[in-house]
Amino acid sequence: MNLSPDPWVWLAALLTLCIYSFLYKDNPFYKAAEHLFVGLSAGYFLVIYWYNAVYPDMVVPLFKQGKLLCIIPGLLGLFFFFRFIPKVGWVSRWSIAFYIGVGAGMSIPATMQMRILEQMKGTMQPFFSLETWHVFVENPSLASFGALIGIPLMIVGVMCTLSYFFFSREHKGVLGGMSRIGIIFLMIGFGASFGYTVMARISLLIGRVQFLMSDWLGVID
């Protein structure tokens, strides 16, 4: 055992334990850590944004370089504060509308490009490929069989999953059958993601335990 002499490490370790105490049940230690967390982090972001956005991108250009155009975003920003005065609170809607309009407009072509056209292209694979067929016939194994049916299965899966998202028609007949297969694909996909994620989640805990056991208590290297 080789306890850390650094008070900062002790502070970090105690806060870590305060948060973990929530797993047993809600308690004053957790409450204190939670409230401290909220206050400090809210302050942190204000400071970071001042130094990284407001100061270099507005204050400097406006007051030191005389770029008057920077007044506009400044005004849009200031409009938010009208909310503190109930009678003219609606002025803040101008800023909100600006923000929402820009976001919505930007997303339309980008979404069409990334989420639709590229994904369509990715799905347009040869349904049957002689190459994988030859590999399978010459060397029948689980792996070569998987490679053979992988792409066709993927194509069928995309179509069926998409049909699950049909809203304007009852899921009966062909559509019903397809959407049911779609659900099967969805469930396998969700299960796979869940299983895949377990690892990531455990590694987070490993990170914390390593901190407690090595940086703080010094029982491992």
Binding site: E118, Q119, K121, G122, A192, S193, Y196, T197, M199, A200, R201, S203, I206
Partner: peptide
């Protein structure tokens, strides 16, 4: 992170990504 790695496989196939490192593994 390992959790989002599965989401990026489609992009590997379309060459939008040239490589991917997933999670602690």
């Amino acid at each position: 992170t390992a959790v989002s790695a599965a989401d990026y496989y489609p992009f590997l196939q379309t060459d939008q990504l040239v490589g991917l490192i997933g999670g602690l593994k």
